[in-house]
């Protein structure tokens, strides 16, 4: 066993300095289309919006409005002839408009236990949630833990569009949680149904089934975006030093 310990020590510290510092490492986030982009040829706004297969872009006069909740990261607007600018960054989590909950502050905010429900996700969101436990993100250092029982959970983290068959297990997991409890919807499927909902097999987002408190857009949202949601929920979301973000998260 000693060789493993030595190897671990030799690896050194890999953990991101976020949220104390902004993390601009290439490849940690695909970015999102910039909203309110002013186009060189304003009359092209309609055509640029039509490129989006998910209805996330909208022409508002000569500008292009972007709804990150609907974006499925197909990159067609970034790479196509209209070249809508995408910005890097990952602090995408927002309080849901309908949420009436307060943040989990004080004693509840420093040791938060998560219950993760896969309500029909494609595995990419879940994979990014899994990455939160790797040494690069190590969410334990910030007081976030995954719990094996809903009875010990403070936060329900839901991925996927909520399929017919997962509706009941999702409601039961939520019902088994003690208060105060909060719900985070992760990924565009969980926010709007994505490509799969609303349909005959899936809802148009977790909010149709449960009261959602924090939403994380992305297809999938990168680990730091999910971490940002947890920080937002516990009132620690605005602390990242606002160093200028790298011009782009994605290669052009």
């Amino acid at each position: 066993m000693s060789k493993w310990i030595l190897r671990g020590l030799a690896t050194g510290v890999k953990t991101t300095r976020y949220p104390r510092r902004h993390d601009g490492t290439p490849g940690i986030s695909p970015g999102l289309p910039e909203t309110g982009t002013e186009l060189v040829f304003p009359e092209a706004a309609g055509a640029a919006a039509a490129v989006c297969p998910a209805g996330a872009l909208e022409a508002e006069g000569g500008r292009l409005g972007a709804d990150p909740r609907r974006c499925i990261h197909c990159m067609r607007c970034a790479w196509g002839s209209h070249a809508v600018p995408w910005n890097g960054g990952y602090e995408w989590a927002r309080w849901a408009a309908e949420s009436s909950s307060a943040k989990l502050a004080g004693a509840f905010g420093r040791s938060v236990h998560l219950r993760i429900v896969d309500a029909g996700g494609c595995d990419a969101c879940l994979s990014e949630v899994t990455q939160l436990n790797n040494p690069y993100y190590n969410m334990h250092r910030l007081g976030f833990f995954v719990t094996p029982s809903p009875r010990h959970a403070d936060v329900l983290l839901v991925v996927g569009p909520v399929t017919t068959h997962m509706r009941r297990p999702l409601l039961e997991a939520y019902g088994a949680m003690p208060g105060p409890r909060r719900v985070i919807a992760v990924g565009s499927c969980a926010l709007t149904g994505g490509l799969f909902g609303p349909s005959f097999t899936a809802s148009g987002g977790v909010a149709e089934v449960l009261p959602v408190d924090v939403e994380v857009p992305g297809c999938p949202p990168p680990p730091l975006a999910i971490l940002h949601a947890l920080l937002l929920l516990t009132g620690r979301g605005g602390e990242a030093e606002q160093v200028p973000e790298p011009g782009k998260g994605a290669a052009r």
């Binding site: 190897r7 490849g27 990455q131 999938p220 990168p222």
Partner: peptide
């Protein structure tokens, strides 16, 4: 524990290299 941390590092670095090279960590699009 240590071995899984070591393996996790490789996974995250692979995801990052895709993100840095072609924009999407899971090569969508």
């Amino acid at each position: 524990t240590v071995a899984s941390s070591q393996a996790d590092l490789l996974v995250e670095e692979a995801l990052r290299s895709a993100g840095a090279a072609v924009g999407h960590r899971y090569l969508f699009g």
